[in-house]
Amino acid sequence: MAIVSANNVTKTFSRPTRLFRRGNEDSVTAIDRLTLTIDQGEFLGLLGPNGAGKSTLIKMLTGILHPTSGDIQVAGWSAQHQRARLAMDLGIVFGQRTQLWWDLPLHESFTILRRMYRVSEDAYRTRLAELAALLDLREFWNVPVRQLSLGQRMRGELAAALLHAPTLLFLDEPTIGLDVEAKAAVRQFLRTLNQEKGTTIVLTAHDMNDVEELCRRIVVINHGRSAFDGTMEALHQRVGMPSRLVVTFNHSVDQLTNLPFDCQAYGNQITASFNRARQSPLAVIDGLRQWGEIIDIQMQEPPLDLVMRGLYQAVR
């Protein structure tokens, strides 16, 4: 069953060119006749370069912005006309902004939100106990939010967004700035939430690992339109996996030629760039071995920018 259905949605912003002069406005189309359906229980990743319309789309789905034309239904409500009612069914985490009460101890935010979302005393107690256990909240329960570490705050944000048991959760950069351990904890929590509670989750992230590990369906927004919609595997087939291998020889090497991948030589090191979807790292090493004795090999994680750039070029 569809929990989100956006039908032929367009959003244009007018940008006044000069003060006091009207009529002569530039208009920018942020979202261009986009249609998107999300089913209940999905874990969807929303990707796109900056300025592609990604955050405009999220804002429209959550009722913050109204579409210029087209119709958006979320959780059975009109996102445009029933914002406050829709808010009861939504959980929202904007990674870079807090929704907690900055100067108050963490648990006070929950008390306030309980009232705001009219959660019954019983439901509140069970729900909070469960979230506190899953997210390990007790250790910083009494600490004012402004004193929490980023990882602690994010756990607090997640609990706050889920207190009223929303059917749909929007996450914008939920792991931004977190260390490896905290990232893993947040991901594990989200996976459990989606699989065991059946909460539909829509995630936007720059961290490709978040998306790769969690999302079963990817939608790429570019120039205000859906440029790709499918599984992670399908996306990989399309974009590949740009990778880098740094190989050190026991003697200095010149620029190598005639290899089926791109090489940069520097002293006795060679940096090979290749597409892991088409070539295995072993094949690359085999190819390099003929040039001399290898004393060290390092695999570099593909730089995110490179992956993203490849992706946006591929879907243009």
Partner: peptide, 23 residues
């Protein structure tokens, strides 16, 4: 300026109430 008003609009209450109840 920093877009905090977006979060205000994601609450199930009139924006005036949410802002007043911020502090």
């Amino acid at each position: 300026v920093n877009g905090e008003f977006d979060s205000v609009l994601t609450r199930p209450a009139p924006a005036l109430v949410v802002v007043s109840a911020r502090s």
